[in-house]
């Protein structure tokens, strides 16, 4: 797996704030489209469909109920 899931961000709190702030004043539909634009831009920046597929898998796993916590 080439997807990096160890902490790498230079400023974690700033990232969170940036993402939340980006959605200010947007309704649900506009918000969803903004996220889509951001994801498309970042996916192109990464330049690998395989890495994005790994991210999709990890992201979907994250919200599944876990057995034996």
């Amino acid at each position: 797996m080439s997807l990096l899931t160890e902490p790498r961000l230079d400023d974690a709190d700033l990232l969170f704030e940036t993402l939340v702030e980006a959605h200010r004043d947007l309704d649900a539909e506009a918000s969803r489209r903004l996220d889509a634009r951001i994801i498309l831009l970042l996916a192109n920046h990464i330049g690998s469909v395989e890495t994005v597929r790994e991210a999709v898998l990890v992201a979907r796993e994250a919200v599944k109920p876990r057995k034996n916590p």
Binding site: R32, A36, L40
Partner: peptide, 23 residues
């Protein structure tokens, strides 16, 4: 709805950003 959001996002980006045009 998600598919439509991605579709429209591609179209919105394509006008100004070359990377989105092949999409």
């Amino acid at each position: 709805d998600a598919a439509r959001a991605y579709r429209d996002a591609v179209l919105e980006l394509a006008e100004h950003h070359a990377f989105a045009r092949p999409l």
